[in-house]
Design a protein around this nucleic acid. Structure first.
Lengths: 212, 212
DNA sequence: CCCCCATTAGAACGATCGCTCTAGAGCAAC
DNA sequence: GTTGCTCTAGAGCGATCGTTCTAATGGGGG
């Protein structure tokens, strides 16, 4: 009940730093201060199941980060750029190690671990759905909200990789500027919850999912 | 002289599909049709050195891809979107396995294999420099060219991860649309070498990406 | 022809892999 | 006190890890 969480947290941390294949059960046991027997007692599925739990947990935590960061800014484009800047500061302050495990892991297991790929896909889908819902709530059409969400996550994950590889915040800042510029081109993306000054000709988008 | 290349190519392919940690020397030997003795004869540095060579080789190949794709389009923004669409088609046709090894590997070794991280950083830097040079040649300012290059690579690598995880082209298409919209906002990024019909003060956003 | 050396070929090393198994510690119920 | 059960603890399993080592092979220069 509590050992479980220690194990999952330790696994999430290890996945974040070094990925799935490089993480051993012994290493996990050491990091979680739990013997291998306990790990297999709580997670009969072994390494795979612990990793799946870690991915899901991370997914549930990170799903609230983007909305939280964007809520602070009245202008959506400004908020987007600020969010990337915050990520840049964060990754630099943690010694270029701060990164979401989902991105690290998905690339290396997508073709070799079907069950984990499925879990990663679920997490990503939940992020997309939540992001779409949030952005639609801030005035974007359903189609635009979904596209922007996908673009934001893609740019963020990719920029994380570049930033870690190059030990530089430049990729994150550049990606942030790009996504902010893109956001600014989307109709009705300018005003948050205040008065709705949706662009005149932009209001007629297919709307697609917009319902929400 | 020729076995070397077989080994490096096999390593690049394995890195692309499953990453560094999950790739074993035996597996590499099988894939390259070379015994382990040969591998260590040609690469005294072992697994690390083969991986470094594979990353460098991939870097040298991929450095020409983006310019080649963009050269086909007179309008830069259109070219960007087409490049992402081409990547989307590619990854789907290859069974969601097609991806550059640099992205897959960098995330998992950035904190554990300093020498490989260095190599990945070199490759990424060479891409950024070449991309910046190319985009500047197409009329962008040096600052904008560099920022756009970083954003393009980030979005592409991130979208690759999402696409592989979700087995969907949507991330790549959304990222492409976003980057095209961003490109269109950059001054002088509209006309290639033909007549310059650059908008007066940023042209007209209404259509955003619509070009297609 | 024979020697030389780059290369091939794979056996073998210790270490570590993911995982299983047994032994016992701790605690609640009766 | 004893029974029953969850969880801890780590030794041990066969397999595989990255690497080293020795032996055989093969083709060009004397």
């Amino acid at each position: 009940m509590e050992t479980d969480k220690r194990i999952v947290n330790a696994m999430a941390e290890l996945l974040r730093v070094q990925g799935y294949a490089a993480t051993g059960i012994q290493q996990l046991a050491r990091a979680a201060k739990a013997p291998t027997g306990s790990i297999y007692h709580h997670f009969r599925g072994g390494k795979r199941e612990v990793a799946a739990a870690a991915l899901r947990q991370t997914g549930a935590v990170y799903i609230q980060v983007l909305p939280m960061l964007l809520d602070e800014h009245a202008d959506l484009a400004t908020g987007v750029e600020a969010a990337f800047a915050a990520a840049a500061e964060d990754i630099e302050n943690t010694g270029w190690a701060n990164m979401c495990p989902v991105g690290t892991v998905t690339g290396e297991i997508a073709d070799t671990e079907p069950e984990l790929r499925e879990v990663a896909a679920e997490v990503l889908t939940s992020w997309v759905e939540e992001g779409t819902r949030y952005l639609a709530g801030r005035g974007l059409s359903g189609t635009d909200a979904r596209a922007l969400t996908y673009a934001l996550i893609s740019a963020l994950e990719g920029a994380f990789i570049l930033a870690r590889g190059q030990r530089s915040t430049e990729p994150l800042l550049a990606a942030g500027r790009a996504m902010a510029a893109y956001t600014a081109t989307l109709p009705a993306g300018a005003s948050p919850s205040s008065g709705e000054k949706v662009g005149p000709s932009g209001a007629d988008f297919g709307e697609g999912v917009g319902g929400f």
